[in-house]
Amino acid sequence: MNEIDKWAGLMHGNNVVPIFQVSSVSGNGLQQLTRFISKVPNRDQLNKAYQTVNDPLQFDIQENFNVSGVGIVVSGIIRSGKAVLNQHVLLGPDKAKQFKPVTIKSIHINRVLTDTAQVGEFACFSLKPSKAGDKLDRADFRKGMIIIDPALKQEPVTEFEANIHILHHPTTMSKGYQAVMHCGVIRQAVEIKNILQNEVLRTGDVDTVRLKFLYAAEFLQTDQILVIREGRTKIFGYISKLITDKQIEDEKKALVNPNLQIKQQL
């Protein structure tokens, strides 16, 4: 059994291929197999896309429904934290970069009513507005919206930097190139505003680029994995830096008044 525990702990390295001889008739080997499965590390603990149950709540909305007699219901994956009944949370960001306060009325996991849901679980929430007089309709939802704890900093961004690897592109790409970015539940077209190291990018190149959302600001975090696709073009990478609206305004002012940039550096 100690040998089984040892190799189960090494499974996350992708270098172990376990082989078990089992019999469904006599039951030989089943005890060792179940022991091995129980000792394999939980992928949610190894995956950087998930945080811990003690972190503030973040729930990625994948689908939304309007259920008769219930109201608005959303489904998705809890990326961090824990959700409980009657918890006050924030829904957003909308196209105006705003978050709307809502309350979790009920929680379902695998169609079973429950009082809590935690990181790594796929759950459904029934929502209602927290403020009296507010309304919540399906028209308020769009791709990329999330539910977060009010303790989290609510600052959606329109621009950010990413370290990318060009897996395939038929020609070259430069500033102004546009394609669709997939990052978690976000699906939106982005444009390359700047390439930090090279003038153009080709298949196999690795570089840091500055990207801009073309339609709406999104809630992002550093180290999030992203995929950019357009036709046969495939780009893989992760977010390295978020650029706030204040930084963008400072850059615009520096372009108008170069002396201001020199003073800021001094």
Results as ranks from 00 to 15, higher is better:
8 A>V: 11
9 G>P: 07
9 G>L: 12
13 G>Q: 13
16 V>P: 05
20 F>D: 02
25 V>N: 07
26 S>C: 10
27 G>S: 08
27 G>N: 07
29 G>A: 04
30 L>F: 08
41 P>C: 14
46 L>F: 12
47 N>K: 07
59 F>V: 13
60 D>E: 15
64 N>Q: 12
69 G>S: 05
73 V>N: 04
74 V>R: 01
75 S>L: 06
84 V>F: 07
86 N>M: 05
86 N>H: 09
91 L>I: 03
93 P>E: 06
93 P>R: 04
96 A>F: 11
101 P>C: 01
118 Q>Y: 04
121 E>F: 01
121 E>H: 02
123 A>D: 01
124 C>M: 08
126 S>G: 03
130 S>R: 01
132 A>Y: 10
134 D>W: 03
137 D>T: 11
147 I>M: 00
149 D>W: 01
153 K>A: 07
154 Q>L: 01
159 E>G: 04
162 A>H: 02
166 I>K: 00
168 H>S: 13
168 H>Q: 08
168 H>M: 11
169 H>G: 01
170 P>R: 00
175 K>L: 01
181 M>H: 06
181 M>G: 09
185 V>K: 08
197 Q>M: 12
198 N>F: 06
199 E>F: 07
204 G>K: 05
204 G>M: 10
213 F>M: 03
215 Y>Q: 12
224 Q>L: 14
230 E>L: 11
233 T>C: 11
241 K>T: 15
249 E>P: 12
253 K>H: 15
254 A>C: 08
257 N>Y: 12
261 Q>C: 09
262 I>D: 11
263 K>P: 07
264 Q>G: 02
265 Q>A: 11
266 L>K: 10
